[in-house]
Design a protein around this nucleic acid. Sequence first.
DNA 1: GTCAACCTCTTTGTATACAAGACCGTTGAT
DNA 2: ATCAACGGTCTTGTATACAAAGAGGTTGAC
Lengths: 231, 231
Amino acid sequence: MLHLEGEVINFRSMETRRADQIAVQLEELIFDGTFVDGQRLDEVRLAEHFGVSRTPLREALQRLALSGMVEMIPRRGAFVRQPGPVELMEMFEVMAELEAACGRLAAMRITDTALTDLRKANAKCLAAVEARDADSYYTENERFHRIIYQQSGNGFLEHETAKLHKRLKPFRRKQLRFRGRMAQSMAEHEAVVAALEHGDSARAEDILRKHVAVQGEKFHTLMASLKRAAE
Amino acid sequence: MLHLEGEVINFRSMETRRADQIAVQLEELIFDGTFVDGQRLDEVRLAEHFGVSRTPLREALQRLALSGMVEMIPRRGAFVRQPGPVELMEMFEVMAELEAACGRLAAMRITDTALTDLRKANAKCLAAVEARDADSYYTENERFHRIIYQQSGNGFLEHETAKLHKRLKPFRRKQLRFRGRMAQSMAEHEAVVAALEHGDSARAEDILRKHVAVQGEKFHTLMASLKRAAE
DNA sequence: GTCAACCTCTTTGTATACAAGACCGTTGAT
DNA sequence: ATCAACGGTCTTGTATACAAAGAGGTTGAC
């Protein structure tokens, strides 16, 4: 199963260390649900799966542990650690605050070309909504937000925000299909662009915070409905 | 130099993995300036300094690399990486936003006991100022802020904020001695407590953001003056 | 019959051994 | 004289070997 070894060799040119590639691949496997929450990650098994010794594999695991996707208990092993509903809400709340901060700063610092790019991304978003193309919407939506991170003019903030954004990716995807969510999201995007254009920090901050926070709330109701269905 | 080996054995009970202890110790050595910016960290040298093999030492280095204090260049080695003036300003800016977020949420969620604790910490701060005890001030100041992180009611936010706070520690320390900074800081603390007490989110957010941001600015002027002095 | 102690087997943590890329000096050619 | 190519050496990255801590099962005592 999972015959990835062939392609790995091609990657060798860009990522010199085997441990890096493995970390990325493991991340994928956790993201896409191949490894479920709480599952123990056997070093020997994984090592032979990837065709390496335990040494680089352990390094990869440690990286995932630091990013919070894996918990390493001394002398016990490494376990997949998906955030529970509470932690997920917390992460969305932080995401909302970070995006708000980006928006606030971007309103003061955004360039004209970036504004144009934002509008372009937004137009493509709209086209995707009308074409009912969820994947395309997702891609353009991501571009939209990434521009805002970048235009905060703060590389550190940009990086941290993008990091959390990436980590929440698999969970955000799940709740995109809510009725009317895309249309509402589009309206919010328009409002954000307008606020940034006018240099209205407070407004950009406010809209973005709510724009992201609502995702967390939608997720919350999703969880609640799942829970009720299970009872 | 640096005879730490004796004590290390005592730590064994709490931190089972040698790599963890080494990571902490290396962090200290970078913080206190024993290793300067750009310095290469020789694996073999450090390994024999700590009395271990390269394996756990490498794991420790990788951890520091992920926290940004060390840069690992493939096939080249690990180098100490202190943030430059620009990155430092960026980090302070993010710190300000995170603290502001904590304050905003804490204003809605703080408990009465926590408010009491805040006042206590503040009183001790004041006593430290009057006693011109910078160390004590620093400790109590930290407690004050940590309570606010905690009372955000968001464990993830608390953790991330504390992480950045810790990373900025060595740089914050340097600019505490500015004329009148302590007194001004005290006044801001009082205002924060008042805002939290009244559940005034917007005000708590605002004061805290400026309270932290001013540290970045002070640092900026400090850097500028150092630069001018060097010319 | 139940509980506890011991023993074994598995698995992690660390040390050592090996492979290969990067630095540096030398040498040779133009 | 300068520059490029080559080889040696040093350092990193990976594999393997070893040590020690847990997990689990079995046996023996009460």
